[in-house]
Design a protein around this nucleic acid. Structure first.
Lengths: 108, 108
DNA sequence: TACAGCACATGAGGTC
DNA sequence: GACCTCATGTGCTGTA
């Protein structure tokens, strides 16, 4: 911490002409770069989610990370529900169709 | 910065018996708390997304924030595509149904 | 050992 | 001014 008191010749002295200091700086810089890349990726994904949300739901709303993610969860749930209901409806449709077919055959 | 050299009686001295120091600390602590809450919210949403992904796609995959968000984007796209194709299919079904109805009426 | 993930604290910027 | 969101740097932890 910055508040630590240390002597002039002990510990990791942040002196410019300390080769170890340079080595650590390079390491940190690399790590910072990697971390920055990771963050950019995550943020881009969240923005992408925000763009593929239904316009009606995402409009008139503060579009920050939290709301985008919440809206995404809700949207996925909605899409899943719609899909399930449509599948159900289609199955019933198929049933009716088969029944009609059998009936037609019998009439014939 | 920590590297700045300052005298013993000038600038914001981080002394324990400085009332201004206490006030700032309190402010920072509150801010930290708020920020923590914000992070928790975002992270919980991402976890929630990870849980509602299709089992097949999310299994056998490193589940970190980046991959969860990417998989979520893909999943939404997939669900939208499925929904659109099912709607199309259903419309065609309705067309056929109407045609059959009209045909039946004419026969009758 | 180098790399990648995460949580955290902190300051900047924006909104009421 | 109080509050909120965000990006950044940093240390810790795990993994190839």
């Amino acid at each position: 911490s910055c508040l630590q008191v240390r002597g002039s010749s002990q510990g990791p002295v942040p002196s410019a002409d300390d080769p170890e200091h340079y080595r650590d700086r390079r390491k940190k810089d690399i790590h910072n770069m990697i971390e920055r890349r990771r963050r950019y990726n995550i943020n881009d994904r969240i923005k992408e989610l925000g763009l593929m949300l239904p316009k009606g739901a995402s409009e008139e709303m503060k579009l920050n990370k939290g709301t985008i993610l919440k809206a995404s969860c809700d949207y996925i749930r909605q899409l899943q529900k719609d899909r399930d209901s449509m599948i159900k409806q289609q199955q019933q449709q198929n049933k009716l169709e088969n029944a009609a077919k059998q009936y037609a055959d019998r009439v014939r």
